[in-house]
Amino acid sequence: MNEEQDLLDAAALTVFRLNGQFLTIGDGLSSPVGISVAWWQVIAAIQEQPQPVAGIARAMGITRQSVQRIADLLVDKGLCEYRPNPAHKRAKLVAMTADGDAAIRRINPQHAAMARRLADTLGPTEFAATVATLTRLSAALEALIAEDELQARRAEEAVGQPVTTRNVQ
């Protein structure tokens, strides 16, 4: 392996570890309120405005099916509701209910305390720089994925058979 491969591996392993750490912290914040961290993520995605399931999935970087399953559970629990989508008849909007808003409000004090602790540990400037770096890394990876998907579509057109680029094993 070369230095660039080592860096890619180190970045991926660090992000995987961060994901686990964020899930652990998120579970600690959300479970006392009676919701899972996955439920909290979906509710947080629609906190500002209702979104279709596909939009939530894109923003979170997970599959539409995963979000659909969670949205259905949230609707069943009364934390969210489906609303008509003026932009698309079949793709309803997922919207937070008053109970969903109350759950988020119950999490907010502990969430704010954890954010303060992390900012105190890293320092505000380093915290902001870390977020900016992670955002740039995500954008760069998304651009590479889009480029690969475009090349795959062109290859499919050339040979007339599907070519897989995501989740390659």
Rank of each mutant, 00 (worst) to 15 (best):
A102Y: 03
M114Q: 10
G55Y: 04
G34N: 10
A57C: 05
N85A: 15
A87G: 06
A102I: 01
A45E: 12
A38W: 06
R17C: 15
V42W: 12
D101F: 08
A59S: 14
A59V: 10
H88A: 11
K77R: 15
R69F: 09
A103K: 15
Q21D: 03
D101R: 00
G78S: 01
Q41R: 12
Q68G: 10
I56Y: 08
G20F: 13
M114H: 06
A38G: 14
R83Y: 14
L23K: 01
A112G: 04
S30C: 09
A103S: 00
A45C: 06
R58L: 10
M114Y: 08
I43Y: 08
S66Q: 04
R90I: 04
A44T: 08
C80H: 02
I46V: 14
Q41A: 02
I62Y: 00
T24H: 02
V42T: 15
I107A: 07
I25F: 08
A113R: 09
N85E: 15
I25K: 01
P109F: 07
S31I: 13
G78W: 08
S31L: 15
G100P: 03
G55H: 01
R83L: 11
V75N: 10
G28V: 05
I107E: 07
L93H: 07
V37H: 12
A44V: 05
S30L: 09
I25T: 12
P52T: 14
A57M: 00
F16Q: 00
S30F: 03
P52W: 03
K92G: 03
A103E: 05
G61P: 03
L74Y: 11
A54K: 13
P86S: 08
A95Q: 11
I107W: 04
K89Y: 12
A102H: 00
L23S: 01
I62E: 06
R90M: 01
N19H: 04
P32Q: 05
D101A: 01
D27C: 04
R58Y: 10
S36P: 15
R90C: 04
G78L: 02
R69L: 06
H88R: 15
C80M: 04
A98T: 12
A102V: 00
P86D: 11
G20H: 01
E81R: 02
S30G: 01
Q49Y: 10
Q110H: 07
G28Q: 05
T24W: 07
G26C: 00
L18Y: 11
I56K: 05
Y82H: 09
I43V: 14
G26E: 14
G20I: 09
D99Y: 10
V42R: 05
R69Y: 05
V42H: 11
V33C: 00
F22N: 12
L23P: 01
V15M: 13
L74V: 07
H111L: 13
R64E: 15
G34D: 08
G78V: 03
L29V: 03
R17N: 06
A12S: 00
V75F: 12
V37S: 13
C80K: 05
L23V: 06
W40L: 04
E48H: 13
